[in-house]
C-alpha cells in the first residue's frame, strides 16, 4: 500500500501489532477473559450457596432454564422480550419515519426549530429521564394521573398493573428512542437525489406514486440495517425496565420475574438481587442472550456491507 513500506526493514512485519497491543491487552482483560469466565460459570453451580465448594454440573443450568424448574419463568420473560423488541423498534421507527417525512419539507421554514425540540429526549441523559418518568407515572400522586382526573378520566394504574406497566415501558422507551430514528430517517430521506422526483413529476407521477415508487423503496434499503440493530439493542435493553418498574409488578410472589422483566433485567436480578444469587444460572442466561444477539449482529453486518468494507 505504501510506496515507502516496501523498503521496510526485516521485523517491520511485527510493527502493526505494536500499534494493536494496548487495545488488545485491554480487550483481553475486560472482554475475552470475562467471556471465558462466563462460559465456564455457565457450566458450574457457582452461587452464594456454593462460593467455595462449587463444581462443574455440565449442561444442568441450560436444562433448568429451557426444560426444568425455570422453564415457565424463562418462557414468559423470553416471549415478552421478543414482543418488546419488535414493538419497541417498530414504534420508534414508525414515529421517527413519520416525523422525518413531515420535516423533510423545505416549505416548512421553521423545521429546524421542531427538530431541535424533538431531539431533546436524545440529548438528555436517559437514566435521569427514565427516573423522572417513574415519578410522572406514579399512580396515586403522579402529575399524569392528576391531569387525567382533572380532564374527567379515571386514574390509570400505570406502573402497578401488569398490562399498563408494559404500556408505560413502551411509552417511555418510545419517548427516548424516536429522536434517533427520526434523525436517521431524515438523513436517509435527504440522501435521495431531488432529480429522481423531478423526473418522475415530469412523467406525471402523483405524490402517492412518488412515495410508493421512489421514497419507500430507497428508504427501505437504507433503513433495514437500522431496524435490525434497533431490534438487537431493544432485545438487551436494561435501563428503561430496571429504572422504571424494576421488572415489576409481580403477579406471582414465588417468581423472580415480574410482568415487565426482560432477559437482561431478569438475569441481573438472578445474579445480584435474588436470595440465592445464582451467578452460574445468570451466566447461562447471558450466554443465551449473546447467541441470539450475536447472530443478529452477523446478519446486520452482512446487510450494512460492513463485511464488504472489511474486504477492501
Amino acid at each position: 500500500m505504501f510506496t515507502a513500506s516496501r523498503r521496510r526493514p526485516i521485523g517491520a512485519k511485527l510493527y502493526p501489532y505494536l500499534y494493536l497491543l494496548p487495545g488488545l491487552t485491554a480487550m483481553v482483560v475486560t472482554t475475552f477473559i470475562p467471556a471465558v469466565v462466563s462460559i465456564i460459570l455457565a457450566f458450574t453451580n457457582y452461587s452464594v450457596l456454593h462460593l467455595q465448594d462449587w463444581k462443574f454440573i455440565g449442561l444442568r443450568n441450560f436444562e433448568k432454564i429451557i426444560l426444568g424448574s425455570k422453564r415457565s419463568e424463562f418462557i414468559g420473560v423470553f416471549t415478552w422480550t421478543v414482543t418488546w423488541a419488535v414493538l419497541a423498534t417498530l414504534l420508534a421507527f414508525l414515529t421517527g419515519l413519520g416525523l422525518a417525512l413531515l420535516l423533510n419539507n423545505r416549505k416548512l421554514r421553521e423545521r429546524n426549530l421542531y427538530r431541535t425540540i424533538l431531539i431533546l429526549p436524545w440529548a438528555m441523559p436517559s437514566t435521569i429521564t427514565i427516573l423522572a418518568w417513574a415519578g410522572l407515572l406514579s399512580t396515586s400522586f403522579g402529575p399524569i394521573n392528576r391531569t387525567l382526573i382533572q380532564l374527567g378520566f379515571k386514574a390509570v394504574p400505570w406502573l402497578s398493573n401488569p398490562f399498563w406497566a408494559k404500556v408505560s415501558c413502551m411509552i417511555v422507551n418510545l419517548w427516548i428512542g424516536f429522536p434517533f430514528m427520526m434523525v436517521a430517517c431524515l438523513g436517509a430521506l435527504q440522501s435521495i437525489p431531488d432529480e429522481l422526483y423531478e423526473v418522475a413529476k415530469m412523467d406525471g407521477a402523483g405524490s402517492w406514486q412518488l412515495f410508493r415508487h421512489i421514497t419507500f423503496p430507497l428508504l427501505r434499503d437504507a433503513t433495514l440495517p437500522l431496524l435490525i440493530s434497533g431490534f438487537a439493542f431493544q432485545f438487551t435493553n436494561f435501563g428503561v425496565i430496571y429504572l422504571l418498574t424494576g421488572g415489576g409488578p409481580y403477579t406471582n410472589p414465588a417468581s423472580l420475574a415480574g410482568a415487565t422483566d426482560l432477559l437482561a433485567t431478569y438475569m441481573y436480578k438472578m445474579a445480584f438481587s435474588s436470595n440465592d444469587r445464582d451467578y452460574a444460572l445468570a451466566a447461562a442466561n447471558g450466554m443465551l442472550i449473546f447467541l441470539i444477539v450475536g447472530s443478529l449482529t452477523v446478519v446486520n453486518s452482512w446487510l450494512t456491507g460492513a463485511f464488504r468494507e472489511v474486504e477492501r
Binding site: V37, S38, L41, L263, A271, V293
Partner: peptide, 27 residues
C-alpha cells in the same frame, strides 16, 4: 489477521454488557 480482527470488533461491539456482568463482577 486484519480482516478477522475487524470482523471480531463488529461482533464484540454488539456484545451486551449484561451477558458478561457476572464474570466482570467476579474478576
Amino acid at each position: 489477521g486484519r480482516r478477522y480482527g475487524l470482523l471480531a470488533l463488529i461482533l464484540i461491539q454488539m456484545l451486551p454488557s449484561a451477558a458478561i456482568i457476572v464474570a466482570i463482577f467476579r474478576i
